[in-house]
Simulated assay, not measured.
Amino acid sequence: MSLLEITDLAISAGDLPLVDGVTLDIQAGEIVALVGESGSGKSLTALSVIGLLGEGLDITRGQIRFDGATYLGAEAQDMARIRGRDLSMIFQEPVSSLNPLMPIGAQVAESLIAHGVTSASAAKDAAIDMLDRVGIPDPKRRAEQLPAELSGGMCQRVMIAAALISQPRLLIADEPTTALDVTIQAQILDLIADLAQEDGTAVLMITHDMGIVAEMADRVCVMYGGRVVEQGAVDAIFSAPRHPYTSMLLRTIPRLDHPPKQELFAILGNVPSPKNWPQGCRFKTRCDRQSTACDIAPVLTGDYHHRTACFHPLSEM
Rank of each mutant, 00 (worst) to 15 (best):
I6L: 08
A13R: 15
A33W: 00
S38G: 10
R61M: 02
I64Q: 08
D78T: 15
A80R: 15
R83V: 12
S88L: 06
I90K: 07
N99Q: 07
A106S: 13
L112W: 03
H115C: 10
S121W: 03
A123R: 08
K124I: 00
A126N: 09
M130V: 10
V134R: 09
G135V: 00
A148D: 09
L150N: 10
C155W: 03
V158Q: 04
A161K: 04
A162I: 02
L170N: 04
A173T: 07
D174P: 02
Q185T: 13
A186M: 06
Q187Y: 01
L191C: 08
L191M: 09
V203L: 07
V213E: 01
V213L: 05
A214C: 10
V222R: 02
M223C: 03
G226D: 08
E230K: 09
A233Q: 15
R242N: 13
P260R: 12
K261P: 00
L264G: 15
L264V: 09
P274F: 06
P274W: 04
W277H: 14
G280Q: 02
K284E: 08
R286K: 14
Q290S: 15
Q290N: 14
S291I: 03
C294I: 03
V299D: 06
T301N: 08
Y304K: 11
H306R: 06
L314G: 08
S315N: 14
E316L: 14
